[in-house]
């Protein structure tokens, strides 16, 4: 899809997306108890993480140079990205496995809509919203009480870094979706995504120097949570965010290419 087609098609795709999300909400409401339990469990999970940090800082003043309030901001940003992944991307990654194995992907591919768009965003998991909202409350609380001081430049770099972060997560997700089409089995792929986030749970500063360099220059783990958190709390060099932006664009294009190749080589089940 070129830019002109994209701009023409965007309003229709946006309407379709809203309809899909409404449907996801209706679906979640079909299982109301599960929905409420999910939100509750998420909020508890978030709180346990918070208590963990509380324990760490009861015996140490800083972790790898990160003060308590900075670390809390880091945690809020990690949970924002982590929960957004679980709200938007993960349910679609799971559904992809089902679509490929059952052959229902055939019917999706015959719709006049961007298949990448449809398969990436059509499902939402609302019961994962507990973590998302509690992390926003924590971030706003830290800012409102003056425990993190955010300058205009830092805020600007933060949003730039956040864009890079989402781009990397989405690229990785798209790679996995493409692999699912090729190998027609996805269970381990979803676990790979989980391992990927394990690396992002703590600032890259806790790793040895050479691992840190690797995570900034080649494998963009640092850009998922550490750089956005640093941008917001202590500030980062604009060149770091520019490098992240460059890498993000490269990763997005590579993932898109890989996806298109996978769709072109799709052989469908049976027949």
């Amino acid at each position: 899809m070129n830019f002109r087609t994209f701009s023409l098609e965007f309003p229709r795709h946006a309407r379709i997306l809203i309809q899909f999300w409404k449907t996801s909400l209706v679906q979640a409401m079909e299982y109301r108890v599960n929905f409420m339990l999910g939100i509750g469990a998420n909020a508890i999970d978030f709180t346990i993480g918070l208590v963990q940090y509380g324990f760490f800082f009861s015996v140490a003043n800083s972790i790898a140079g990160w003060q308590k309030d900075q670390m809390l901001a880091f945690y809020a940003i990690f949970m924002t990205i982590f929960s957004l992944h679980f709200i938007v991307l993960f349910p679609n990654l799971e559904a992809m496995s089902q679509l490929v194995n059952s052959g229902a992907l055939d019917l999706v591919l015959t719709k006049p809509i961007s298949v990448q768009f449809l398969l990436s965003f059509r499902k939402l998991s609302f019961d994962e919203m507990g973590s998302f909202f509690t992390s926003q409350v924590l971030l706003l609380g830290l800012w409102a009480t003056g425990r993190i001081d955010v300058s205009a430049q830092n805020l600007f770099l933060f949003f730039g870094a956040l864009f890079c972060s989402f781009s990397f997560v989405y690229s990785f997700f798209l790679f996995l979706m493409a692999i699912a089409i090729r190998i027609e089995k996805l269970q381990n792929m979803a676990e790979l995504m989980w391992s990927f986030f394990t690396f992002c749970r703590y600032p890259v500063d806790v790793f040895p120097r050479w691992v840190r360099s690797l995570f900034i220059s080649l494998i963009p783990i640092a850009f998922i949570t550490t750089i956005p958190a640093k941008a917001l709390t202590v500030g980062v060099e604009p060149s770091t965010v520019i490098w992240g932006g460059f890498l993000a664009v490269v990763f997005l294009f590579a993932a898109r290419f890989f996806w298109k190749t996978a769709i072109a080589s799709y052989t469908s089940a049976g027949g």
């Binding site: 229709r12 309407r15 379709i16 309809q19 899909f20 449907t23 209706v26 679906q27 079909e30 299982y31 059952s102 052959g103 229902a104 055939d106 019917l107 015959t110 719709k111 006049p112 809509i113």
Partner: peptide, 25 residues
């Protein structure tokens, strides 16, 4: 394309919801 062994309908939802999605598509 209609395939007797594959389905367009959302499993957990009434068909009217799937029809509403197709109206947008």
């Amino acid at each position: 394309l209609v395939m007797g062994q594959k389905q367009n309908l959302w499993w957990d939802l009434p068909p009217i919801e799937t029809l509403a999605i197709h109206r947008e598509i």
